[in-house]
Design a protein around this nucleic acid. Structure first.
Lengths: 201, 201
DNA sequence: CGAGAAAGCAAGTACCCGCTTGCTTTCCGC
DNA sequence: GCGGAAAGCAAGCGGGTACTTGCTTTCTCG
């Protein structure tokens, strides 16, 4: 692998555990299996290394897309929710660190927020589509519901490991529960499972 | 004020901005208007100062109580929600730091979680009371709703300042919206405002 | 094979951090 | 007014951190 990428990945790992101040150049170089001098030759300074790290992380944030034309809201949203939650959970330490450094390194916090922010926008568009297709009630406070839904994913990813018991169990079922609860809140009727030929009145 | 408390409060302020590693004893002593040596004479070490700080913070976490017998859920819950959200918002920097230091100082993270955890328990008891008095539907997935509600408060407090626009506006109305959305989710019917003499069927 | 680039290595600089020491000043009750 | 406790002050110690320098090793490509 390119030495540049090896250092960046090592920096991400060390940063996720120790934060910016604790992620010393020695530690990062060691983790990357690289001489510390090489780190400085490659990136110039610790600051610019982390600048690039934040940029890369923001660019790489995957926001799965929701269909423009909703067909099976429960299923589609559960799937989306699972992906977003998995992403947030996987990067929880990194995100926690970045957000906690808001006061000292605001750009890092901003970069960390970009992914989730886009996800929220995608969800809002999806709910508009639900309304447009008569699947969701148009009157509800959907903005509040969306905000609560996104916070739920965020809270689950950030806090579950330190507050077990405060989140839906088992963890694997959480996405379905969040999605179902959200859909009820925006007035989407639950379908009978797995497309029965006729709907029960 | 006692010198002990002055140092503790200064430590909390500095810590909220710079985190544990950034909160140097020099900085804390300066903020407290105290000689650095006095800090060490009083607390012995930086570690034990922060130990005491975490303990004090956990003990001082105020969890407002909800009535054992619910009368006006919308009103009661909005009020409770406002208090909890205000607490979380006021201490957001402190909490962000403590939670982000989960890997290096797990006791700090645990202490920071204690308050919110108790709040969640109080809410769960309240919902049980709602059910017992026939005000909430007993069948719903109330656990998920509670978890989402608590996450909403957490997410709002932690992220609003760095993601304006992703949360209910104006901020002052957020508690009422969260409460209302939650009550709908657990099947509490909205009352006509302000106790009309007869209830409309 | 040989030149140049890339990486390693050892050492060093200037500064910061937690913490200590030795001493002086201030203050309060008897 | 005086003795003792509490706080201040100046200096320093050992170790860590970002970053630099000067030199050697290794690899690549023509």
């Amino acid at each position: 692998m390119e030495i540049r990428e090896r250092i960046l990945e090592a920096a991400a790992r060390v940063y996720a555990v120790h934060g910016y101040r604790g992620a010393t150049t020695r530690l990062i170089a060691n983790e990357a299996g690289v001489n510390e001098v090489t780190l400085f030759r490659t990136f110039g300074s610790k600051d610019s290394l982390f600048e690039e790290l934040a940029r890369g992380h923001a660019d790489a944030a995957v926001v799965p897309d929701l269909p423009a034309v909703p067909v099976d809201p429960e299923r589609e949203l559960t799937r989306w929710c699972r992906t977003v939650l998995a992403y947030l959970t996987q990067h929880r330490s990194f995100l926690r660190k970045s957000m906690s450094e808001m006061e000292e390194r605001p750009l890092a916090a901003e970069a960390a927020c970009r992914g989730p922010h886009c996800a929220g926008d995608a969800l809002a568009r999806y709910v508009e589509a639900l309304k447009a297709h008569g699947l969701a009630k148009p009157e509800g406070e959907t903005d509040t519901a969306i905000s609560m839904f996104m916070s739920s994913l965020f809270g689950d990813a950030m806090c579950r490991e330190m507050m077990p018991g405060a989140f839906p169990e088992p963890a694997h079922d959480a996405p379905a529960r969040y999605a179902s609860c959200f859909l009820r809140a925006v007035g989407v009727r639950r379908r009978a499972s797995r497309k029965p030929r006729t709907s029960a009145a």
